[in-house]
Computed example of a mutant assay.
Amino acid sequence: MTTIQKDQKDQKDHRDQKKQSILLAGASGVLGRHVAHALTGAGHKVTGLGRGPDNGVRADLGDRDALLRAIDGRHFDTVIHAATALRKPPVRDRDMYATDALRTEGTAHLVEAARLTGARRFVVESMVFGYGFGDHGDRPLTEDTPFGPRGRTARLERHIAAMRTKERLAFDSEGLEGVALRFGLFYGPGGTEALLPLLRKRQLPMPADHGRVLPWVELTDAARAVAAAVERGRPGRAYNIADGTPLGFRAHVETVAMAFGLPKPMTVPLWLMRPMSYAHTVMASRLRVSSARADHELGWTPRYPSTREGLDAMVPADR
């Protein structure tokens, strides 16, 4: 074997070592579909886990015994928890309860399943709201900021405790290399389309932002971050994943309307949103995060550094 041939073989062996067998909980969800595509494109073998018929492993994360039976005899290198119970944007606090349960009981069950499959890495979808809802000022929060502070009210504590528990289970489970990705608010293909008919019919009133901003991330960018975490995430580490242009909730929706040539939302006072308790809490928050750690350790930077650029990529060129 010549030196060139040996170098080529070593390079191929290195690439093959990086290919993994991955169990993806939530593979049929809005984020999960993009994650499956990103992982497959990187050469990994992805098996979906969920209740739908398109999943290679059909099971409900809430049913521990059925889940363990479904994965019996299977082997995976990495398990990813990207499952959600949301089928549309949450408006009231109760809309989050099923997803809260997936973050607690569902994660505990999936940790058991991961161990039984011999997986080493366990990657979880987390959220920047785990830093707490409310006004965090203008200074970007880093991963060193305390995560999961007690919520100001019982309903907020329910949501924050679920995010806190999900990360703790990922990091503290013996034998697993836990990695958490703290995402900004999602938009993009498969997500933003839900807003379009509401904007078209002028059924999406929004309060003014008054300086409040939130982190955002385009869905395919978020999926790329998951693939990077599978390959390069450091065990026990969390990573903020957001673009470089935080935007108020109303400003984001106005950008959607502009990109698709639709009417801007009507303006209403913030207090009028109080019956929509969860949406009101989100819209009343001000939060910025730094994604510098993801850049340095994962090699991840957003392809779309702002909502405007991400939405432009969605709009047909001939519109």
Rank of each mutant, 00 (worst) to 15 (best):
L270A: 13
M96Q: 14
D144P: 02
M96P: 05
G236A: 03
R103K: 07
D13Q: 12
G188N: 03
W271A: 08
G299F: 03
L262K: 02
L196P: 08
R74M: 11
F260G: 06
S291I: 02
D209C: 01
A98M: 04
R87V: 12
D65C: 03
L214I: 05
G211Y: 01
T78Y: 05
D100Y: 08
A251G: 03
T99S: 15
L272V: 13
L204N: 07
V226P: 07
K201L: 15
L272P: 05
G299D: 04
G26K: 07
A154M: 03
H34W: 12
G62Y: 11
G211T: 00
L287V: 12
H159G: 00
P197T: 08
L102T: 11
D10I: 09
S290Y: 06
T78I: 10
F133K: 02
A66P: 05
A82P: 07
T245Q: 15
E177H: 12
D144F: 07
V30I: 12
P269K: 01
V268D: 04
R58E: 10
R74F: 05
G261V: 14
G211Q: 00
T3N: 10
I80Y: 05
V124Q: 06
R51Y: 10
D221H: 03
L61S: 12
E112D: 15
A225H: 11
D63F: 01
P305W: 09
G236C: 03
E167Y: 10
E193Q: 13
L31W: 08
P205E: 11
L31P: 07
S285L: 13
Q5P: 06
Q17H: 14
A114M: 09
T267P: 08
Q5Y: 09
P90H: 06
A154D: 10
R164Q: 08
L196H: 04
P263H: 02
P205R: 01
T142C: 09
E157Q: 13
H37C: 03
G178E: 09
K166L: 15
W300N: 01
L270T: 12
A25K: 04
A154P: 09
D312Y: 00
G62N: 15
H75N: 09
D60N: 15
T142W: 11
H159R: 12
D77S: 06
R94M: 04
T245Y: 02
